[in-house]
Simulated scan of single mutants.
Amino acid sequence: MSKRSTVTLKGLAQELGLSPSTVSRVLNDAAGEDSRWASPETNRRILTLASELGYAKNPYAASLRTARSGLIGVVVPRLQDYVLATIYEGVDEAAAEHGYVAVVANSLDNPVSHEARVRKLMDRRIDGLILGDTPFDGSTLTAIEREDVPFVLVNRRSPGHPSVTCNDYLGGRLAGEHLAGLGVEKVFLLAGKDRMSTSIDRTAGFTEALAEHGIELPASHIATGGFDAEGGEEAMRRLLEASGVPEAIFAVNDFAAIGALGVLAERGLSAPEDVKLVGYNDTPLAGGVGLTTVRSPMHQIGRQGLELLVETMAGRPVESRQLDPELVIRTTA
Results as ranks from 00 to 15, higher is better:
His161Pro: 02
Tyr169His: 07
Ala30Arg: 12
Ile200Val: 01
Arg237Leu: 07
Leu217Asn: 03
Gly17Phe: 03
Tyr55Thr: 05
Gly171Val: 10
Gly244Asp: 03
Asp282Tyr: 06
Phe206Gly: 01
Ala286Glu: 10
Val104Glu: 05
Asn106Ile: 15
Val310Cys: 02
Glu97Asn: 12
Arg173Leu: 01
Asn281Glu: 14
Leu277Gln: 06
Thr48Ile: 09
Pro272Cys: 14
Glu307Asp: 09
Met122Lys: 09
Leu153Val: 10
Asp148Ala: 10
Arg78Ala: 14
Ile72Ala: 07
Leu240Cys: 06
Leu182Trp: 11
Glu216Met: 09
Gly160Gln: 05
Thr134Asp: 01
Leu153Asn: 09
Met196Ser: 03
Ile301Tyr: 06
Ser2Gly: 14
Tyr169Pro: 02
Met313Cys: 13
Arg330Ile: 05
Glu307Asn: 02
Arg65Leu: 10
Gly32Gln: 02
Val278Cys: 14
Gln322Asn: 13
Ala102Leu: 11
Pro111Trp: 08
Thr203His: 02
Arg78Tyr: 15
Ser69Ala: 13
Ala211Gln: 06
Glu230Asp: 13
Ala219Asn: 08
Phe151Lys: 05
Pro272Arg: 13
Leu323Ala: 07
Ser199Lys: 01
Ala50Trp: 05
Gly54His: 14
Met236Lys: 04
Leu264Thr: 00
Gly17Asp: 00
Leu269Asp: 01
Leu16Cys: 05
Val118Gly: 03
Val328Gln: 04
Arg25Tyr: 07
Thr283Leu: 15
Arg195Tyr: 10
Thr207Phe: 04
Gly232Phe: 02
Arg303Ile: 14
Val252Arg: 01
Ser163Pro: 11
His213Ser: 13
Thr86Lys: 15
Val289Asp: 02
His221Arg: 04
